[in-house]
Simulated assay, not measured.
Amino acid sequence: MKPTHVTLRQIGNSQGIVIPKPLLAQVGLIDESAVEISVENGTLVLRKPRRAVREGWAEAARAIAERGEDALVMGEFGNEGDDTEIVW
Rank of each mutant, 00 (worst) to 15 (best):
K2Q: 06
P3Q: 00
T4P: 02
T4D: 02
H5D: 04
H5V: 14
T7W: 02
L8D: 02
I11S: 01
I11Y: 01
I11A: 08
N13E: 11
S14P: 04
S14A: 15
S14I: 14
S14N: 11
I17A: 01
I17N: 05
V18M: 09
I19Q: 05
L23F: 01
L24R: 03
L24A: 13
A25K: 12
G28L: 09
G28M: 09
G28W: 00
L29N: 05
D31L: 08
V35G: 02
E36W: 04
I37W: 04
E40F: 02
N41R: 10
G42V: 10
T43F: 05
T43W: 02
K48A: 10
R50A: 12
R54L: 15
R54W: 07
W57P: 04
A58P: 05
A58I: 13
A61W: 03
A61H: 00
A61T: 11
R62G: 01
R62K: 08
A63P: 04
I64W: 08
A65G: 06
E66G: 08
R67E: 05
D70Y: 10
A71N: 07
A71K: 10
V73M: 12
G75Y: 06
F77K: 09
E80T: 15
D82G: 13
V87R: 01
W88S: 10
